[in-house]
Each structure stands twice: as C-alpha cells, then as structure tokens.
Design a protein around this nucleic acid. Structure first.
Length: 516
DNA sequence: TGTTAGACTTGGAAGAATTTTA
DNA sequence: TAAAATTCTTCCAAGTCTAACA
C-alpha cells in the first residue's frame, strides 16, 4: 500500500529495525503503532488497524540493500564521501570559545526515529520527532556572528548566556528533556572540568578516614535519619553505589541506586559462605544493568538494616528517611564540593593506583605490564559494576585463540628439539651463527607463546566487563600516565588518539612520580 | 522541605574504520 | 584479498546534582 509521506517515514523507522529485538517487545510495538497511527491520514487509519497485519519486509529489504550498496561502493567513491563528511565537520563541527577554536562534541541535532529506551522502558517505540530550527535555541557570544538558520527558517531564540557551556539546545518530545550541543571532551573547557573533578576526589582522599569514622559513629546515632544516612554512605563508599535519585514512576524503567533501594532489593543472611552478617543485593541500576553482590558487612550495619527492614513491604524504601538531596547536603558539610558521586571517582582512582602498585613488576615485558594494567582497570570496572553483553563471537574467538596457543606450543617444542640437535652436532666446532640462529628462533617463539597466553587470560577475564567507562570517566588519567612513564610503557598502549586528546591536560602535567 | 527545570556527566550499544586472519 | 575480528567513534539514553521556586 502506498502511504502518505508522513506515515511512510514513520513506517521506515520500524522497518529498519525489523531484525532488532525491540520489535518483539509488546510495549515497543504498542507505542510505535499508536504514534504511527497519529501520523496517518484518516483514510490510512481506516485501513491500517493492526500492527500484526502489517508487513514491513519490503521496507526492511530496501534499507538492507541500500546499506549493502554503500559497502560495495568503489574505493574512490568511499573516499569522496569521507571527504564530504570531513568538509561538513570543518564547517559546522567547531566553534570559537574565548578566542580558541574548539571541537564540538555533537554538532548535528538528533534525527527522528523510534525511542530506544533501555530495560523495561514504558516509552520505548514512541516516535521521536524531527527537530526543526524553530525548536532550537542558539547560545553564542553577544557580538559574535549568529549562525544562519536554514533557508526559510528561524531559530526559536538566540541568547548570550555566559553561565552555561552549551551552544544550542532543544526539547526532545518523548521524555520532554532538553538536549544540548556541547563541546568535545578534548576542549579546554571540558578538560578543566575533568581536572577539577579529580582534584575534588583527591581532596576526599585527605579526609576520607575522618568521614569514615564519622559515619561509623553515626551507625549508633539516636536519630533514625542519621543512621540511615550513615549506612547508605557506607554502601556508597564500600561498594561504589550510585546516589540513587528518586524517579517519577511510569516515566522510565524501574531502576534504583543507593538511596532509592527498596526492601525487595536486599536480603539479610546471618551467615553465608562462612561469613557472618552477609547482605545480598539484587537490583537493576543505571541502564537496567543488574547489580548482584553478596557482601559481608560489619555487625552494626547488619543490625541497622534489620531495623530499617522491620515491618516493611517489599516495595517500600529501605532508607525511607533519606534522599540524595539530604545526603549530599550532609556531605557538603563534611567537605567542600563533596557529593555522593565523588566517592565513586575517589574509590575508582585509588583502586587503580593500588592495583597498579601491587601488580606491576619492573622487570616484566611490556605485554605483561599491559596485562597488569588491564587487570587493575578491570578491578575498577568490577567495583563500579560496568558490564557489557559478552560479544556474540566470544566463544568462537576464544576457541580460535586456544588452538593458536596449542599450535604455538607445538612450534616451541620443535624449535627446542632442533636447538638441542644443533648443539649436539656442533658442540665441538665453531659454528656460532647457526646455533645462534636456532636459539633466537626458539626465544622468539617462546615470547609469542607468552603473549598469546596473556591475551587469552585477558580475554577470558574481560568477557563481561566493560573497561571503557571507568577509563574515560573515573580513573584520574595522571595515574595511568605516571605509570607509563615510570615503567617505560608507551602511553599510546593505554590511550588511543581520542583518549590522548581528551586527557591532554593530564599528559601535560603528570610526571612519573604523580600520586593521586 | 519538597518539587521541578536545567545543565552537565556517565553509560552501553551500534555503527564505522581498521587490523588480522584465512 | 575478502571476510572476520577488533578497535575506535558516535550516538543518545540515563544518571547526578544545583538552583529556583513554592
């Protein structure tokens, strides 16, 4: 059936996603269909009454073919497209801020499509509308040249607000949230903020012992609110939980953080796995990632939890007297600039530094040092519960790696035997070069074997752990850079080009003796 | 004290580019 | 040299936290 332009466009959004799991979800299908029908003409609405009766395969095929054609384009054509994108980037991807040309992070508005909320999001599948110039507010210098809106259009507003960092903003219709155009992480502005963030975390290092004894004392406070705060803070500190703001019900997936934990998310065990006073956490955190952990806690914490849980239903809040606002207010009193998230930054960075110290040996090869680094990074990712879906090809590539190792072992054995033979044959005579050649061959193979073994370990241990987030947002880059310099590891082995640009501030200032 | 809007950081996945492998 | 695997980059959703207001 031939659709009107508007209805057709929305249909293509769905058609493109036919292979995606989203289209199997009832909520997604329902929301999509409702919004799609809104775009239809009255005549279309009369005909199209059930999603299950609609066949999108032709649309899907069209886009699949188009993607394939793109992939099959000749080299020169691809090059041309790349140059075109680069031109666009050069024209629109930069701004002048305080006289410096800075790269913009996201210079394009988000295209229309179907909302891809994560977890059990009640709004998944809803139509995210196209952003028009009339929706966009521009924020630029008072006497700078205002960017030209597309022909025939006007900006919603042009303002000059020096107190914020965004360059343009609009409201997205699904969540009714403001979206911003902001600078790239490599910019001076973002770099400075990043640096400040880690400096606050370093200040926490100086007072953390005091704060810890304070909350331990508060476990016995006469005031219920103070007790709850003290136990929550203990979790935030020890387990690196997020603050856990309250969320409006029905607007997004049901996820929680520390302050919003409910009775149903914790289970108390007087004893488990040989430890007394064990708390079992099981809840969905940010992005609906499951947090599961069984941790022994100190007796007063356990007793307090029993108290907080008393006479409550599963759906009630564990810390009913606590909000993130009151917690942060308390933290602010303990240290200037202290908030719940600083504990995550602090504990992540201090863990990295500690692990690097414990694991690195100066005499190790670069490969071994990198494994140590990865392990230290991984310890942090585990602490912060940064998980990823195991790559689809994981088992297969693991198996491939294992057989490669077997093959290499075989080669090493052979090389060994040959070296022995050469030794025996030339023991008395002076044929050093031949022997040396054999020896070097063996050495090289053994090195390769070690490297493969390292790779395999690394891969296995990292199956479900996402390292990127901690590396980019939680680990003071100066720790890594100092480590590189101290142990002769090229920084490029740790940070790729983009990351080096983001951490330019740290590359400038971190000596090999930097201490977090 | 609670509520909300607004601004900014954090987060995993998808898509693109590059490298490795067969 | 194609295709498979890996790494990099982009995307945009989902958090945190502050400030303004009632």
């Amino acid at each position: 059936m031939k659709l009107s332009l508007a209805a057709e466009e929305v249909a293509t959004f769905y058609g493109k996603m036919l292979e995606h799991e989203y289209t199997t979800k009832e909520v997604f299908r329902h929301n999509f269909f409702r919004d799609w029908r809104k775009e239809m003409t009255a005549a279309e609405r009369k005909v199209i009454k059930r999603l299950s009766k609609c066949d999108f395969t032709e649309i899907h095929r069209h886009f699949a073919d188009r993607a394939a054609a793109r992939r099959a384009l000749p080299r020169e054509e691809k090059q041309r497209l790349k140059e075109e994108a680069e031109k666009l980037q050069q024209e629109f991807g930069y701004c002048i801020l305080d006289g410096h040309r800075e790269k913009i992070g996201n210079f394009k508005t988000e295209p229309p499509g179907l909302f891809r909320g994560r977890g059990d999001h009640p709004k998944m599948g809803m139509l995210k509308r196209r952003v028009l110039p009339e929706d966009v507010t521009i924020n630029c210098g008072r006497d700078s040249k205002v960017p030209e809106p597309p022909a025939g259009h006007q900006w919603k507003e042009v303002r000059s607000d020096r107190t914020v960092t965004w360059l343009a903003a609009w409201t997205e219709n699904v969540q009714n949230a403001t979206k911003y155009v902001m600078l790239n992480p490599s910019s001076k502005l973002k770099g400075e903020r990043d640096w400040e963030k880690y400096e606050v975390a370093r200040r926490l290092k100086g007072v953390v012992d005091e704060i810890r004894s304070r909350y331990r004392a508060d476990w016995k406070s006469r005031e219920m609110k103070a007790r709850q705060r003290a136990v929550a803070l203990y979790f935030i500190d020890k387990l690196a939980l997020r603050a856990g703001n309250e969320k409006e019900e029905g607007e997004s997936a049901d996820t929680v953080g520390c302050c919003s934990l409910r009775v149903e998310h914790v289970q108390l065990h007087p004893e488990a796995d040989g430890c007394p006073y064990v708390v079992e956490f099981d809840f969905l955190g940010k992005d609906s990632i499951r947090y599961y952990n069984k941790v022994p806690v100190e007796k007063p914490v356990y007793r307090n939890l029993q108290l907080f849980l008393e006479n409550k239903d599963p759906g009630e809040e564990l810390f009913d007297r606590l909000t993130t606002a009151s917690l942060n207010k308390h933290l602010q009193d303990l240290m200037d600039g202290l908030t719940a998230k600083v504990f995550r930054t602090y504990n992540a960075s201090i863990t990295l530094q500690g692990q690097l110290r414990a694991l690195t040996r100066a005499e190790d090869s670069i490969a071994a040092k990198l494994l140590s680094y990865n392990r230290a990074n991984r310890a942090v990712a585990v602490l912060c519960n940064h998980q990823r879906a195991p790559p689809k090809t994981f088992e297969k590539s693991m198996q491939a790696l294992r057989s490669k190792i077997e093959a290499k072992k075989q080669q090493v054995a052979e090389a060994k035997a040959e070296l022995e033979k050469a030794r025996a044959g030339h023991a008395s005579r002076e044929d050093g070069s031949f022997l040396e050649k054999r020896r070097r061959r063996l050495e090289k193979l053994e090195e390769q074997l070690v490297r493969l073994g390292t790779q395999a370990t690394d891969k296995e241990e990292g199956k479900q752990v996402a390292l990127g987030t901690s590396k980019l947002n939680y680990l003071d880059p100066r720790i890594s850079i100092a480590w590189c310099r101290r142990f002769g590891v090229p920084v490029e082995k740790i940070y790729n080009k983009t990351q080096r640009e983001k951490f330019a501030w740290a590359l400038d200032m971190a000596g090999e003796d930097f201490e977090f």
